[in-house]
């Protein structure tokens, strides 16, 4: 689905603290599979994930999405592609406080201009799917960690993306909740979605759901299986 060739990413380019977080990545992400990125802290997992998910542009190198070169696209078009293709689940969940669960779920669909009624119906169905139907009007700051993550998952699915991207999804969860998350992951993978995640957690990386593991060190791929 995604093909990266010779990707390099610099921070603070041209200044004394210039830092190359990625130096020459070649990687293909298979469609309808679960790919996990692992590696020590600071190895560039999150940076790579932002490039895969069209959140950021590489400083050098090519990114192809289904054969189309998208590496030089301005942010305006990149955002459009991202909205249609990817759903995001963040480590800190990143829900907007003060809004209810269902309001948070529909947020990514606002720029698409789909009618509110349609959006609310879909959001409700998604929440019911993860057993949160009864909490739809609760403010997110009152939800437990596990519930918040399930809201975040629903939010990632509102635009019905082909791919899901998750950065350290289990870092803030205990073992029981992590298991629950893996269950949901399994269901999503079974429904034919491409999933890319980063994790330190052996329970995730070594679980049966994950098809493809990529190991990073110092901004380079050291192992792939």
């Amino acid at each position: 689905m995604l093909e990266l060739t010779n990707i390099r990413k610099a921070f603070n380019q041209g200044r004394h603290n210039e830092y190359w977080a990625l130096s020459g990545i070649d990687l293909a992400i298979p469609e309808r599979k679960v790919t996990a990125l692992r590696g020590p802290s600071g190895s560039g997992k999150t940076t790579l994930l932002t490039i895969l998910g069209c959140l950021a542009r590489p400083t050098e190198g090519r990114v192809r999405l289904k054969g189309e070169d998208i590496s030089g696209l301005p942010e305006r078009f990149l955002t459009e592609i991202r909205r249609q293709t990817f759903g995001f689940i963040f480590q800190q969940f990143n829900l907007i406080r003060g809004l209810s669960a269902i309001e948070n779920v529909v947020l990514p669909a606002y720029p698409t201009g789909r009618p509110r009624k349609v959006l609310l119906e879909r959001a409700e169905a998604l929440l019911a799917d993860v057993n949160l139907g009864h909490r739809r009007d609760a403010k997110v700051e009152w939800l437990s960690g596990g519930e918040q993550q399930r809201v975040a998952i629903c939010r990632a699915l509102i635009n019905d993306p082909e791919a899901l991207i998750a950065d350290e999804p289990t870092a803030n969860l205990d073992t029981k909740l992590s298991k629950e998350f893996l269950g949901i992951l399994e269901r999503l993978a079974a429904s034919g979605r491409t999933i890319i995640l980063t994790s330190h957690d052996p329970m995730v990386v070594e679980s049966a759901v994950v098809d493809h593991v990529v190991t990073l060190r110092d901004g380079q791929i050291v192992d792939e299986k």
Binding site: A10, Q13, E60, G72, E75
Partner: peptide, 14 residues
Amino acid sequence: DIASGSERQLRLER
């Protein structure tokens, strides 16, 4: 330079 992903280009686009 639209093809470049340099930080300057990103700044200009912004």
